[in-house]
Amino acid sequence: MLQALFDERIGENPLNKSIVIYTDISDSPNPDPINFAERLVALKSRFILAVDNCPPDLHRRLGLICSKPNSLVSLITIEYDVKDDQPEETEVFRLEPASTELIEKVILKRFSHITEIDARSIANFSGGNARIAIALGNTVKRGDNLSQLKDSDLFIRLFQQRNEPSKSLLRAAEACSLVYSFNIQLSENEELELLSDLVGMNVQEMYRNVSELMRRDLVQKRSVWRAVLPHAIANKLARRALENIPIEKICSVFENGGSERLLKSFSRRLSYLHENEEAIEISKRWLKEDGLLGDVSNLNELGITLFKNIAPLNPELTLSVIERVFKISSAGTFFTRSNEFYNEYTRLLRSLAYDKHLFIRSAEILSSWLWLPKPRTFLFEITLRTWSLK
């Protein structure tokens, strides 16, 4: 997609491709982008520095370097999951999924033997993701008929990609999909070991399976990090994992495995599965009074992250957990601005208030934090003020 900015055939005023310098963080570039950017700025010449798979912290540091006085270097970074807390001088452009009609045209042009009916089936299954559509198109032989296949059949076809079926590979993919990302190094962390434990697999076999998934373009890398992508596939695999692995086993591995980072990553995956029964059951387990997140008045930074991530799974129960503290007269400074997580809780309550069934209850708690009297009388004012919370 970055190439389109420099393509004279697309749009108007393309960028000058003779001054662009590109790197992908997943290739471990040498010199590193920070040092290289500083050198470019020192040259006082016009350059465009493009950094693919660029994490937010690296983007911020590069932005500070390239925006120095007298700098002639422009910065473009590409990241799959862009957050809302970008620096002020950063413009964010989001690529949305393509239309079904556009994906269908791509398939028909790329695969002359695929019929219009099958191209439409592929386009519908891909959810607007061209990479999924093309990978699935590569599995179609002349004379195949996809129109009668279920989504589950198309998924297996995409996963196997003309290879022999492998239960071991599928189990590994399911385990890895339960987290947003994981560390592949064996000598310095236990993340791969924990994921292996989920499906009763040794670490060496898991490593081999992850490598094979990369070859099938279902796992992507950034340095030592791996992730099942695109998320449309990861979410399908995660739902299978939650159905195939006992909840007690999953919770035990992530809660007691000793990796806070992996636990956060697991909760982030759960946030995408709000219609999955097993994911909702885990949220209930965590939010009950004696559960992992049952007492929100004593949550640390890890706890508040987990709490925010699983809130979409069960909004009413999430609100009830906050209400449990609200009803305790000895809540102390929890409902004051002295609460270090004041912003996180008020933003969460604002989000919960979008549900008409939860609006009154959320507004009453917000009014306590915002020091407004008679909350039911001032609901409109509360609504206006919640929009401006930082």
Rank of each mutant, 00 (worst) to 15 (best):
R261P: 10
L262E: 10
L263N: 05
K264T: 02
K264Q: 01
S265D: 09
S267C: 13
S271E: 07
L273N: 10
H274V: 06
H274E: 11
H274N: 15
E277V: 00
E278G: 03
I280G: 02
I280A: 03
S283G: 13
S283R: 01
S283P: 00
R285A: 00
W286Y: 15
W286A: 04
L287K: 12
L287P: 04
L287E: 10
K288G: 06
D290K: 11
G291E: 08
L292F: 12
L293A: 12
G294D: 14
L299V: 08
E301W: 11
L302D: 08
L302C: 03
I304S: 01
I304H: 02
T305P: 02
T305I: 02
L306T: 05
F307C: 06
K308R: 05
A311Q: 04
A311H: 02
P312N: 03
P315G: 09
P315I: 00
P315R: 03
E316L: 10
L317V: 12
L317A: 07
L319R: 10
L319V: 00
L319S: 09
L319Y: 06
S320G: 04
E323V: 01
R324T: 05
F326N: 07
K327F: 11
K327Y: 10
S330P: 02
A331N: 15
A331L: 04
G332D: 15
T333F: 14
F334V: 05
F334N: 06
F334I: 03
R337Y: 13
R337D: 11
S338G: 15
E340G: 02
N343W: 01
N343Y: 10
Y345Q: 03
T346H: 03
T346I: 15
R347L: 14
R347I: 13
R347W: 15
R347C: 13
L348G: 08
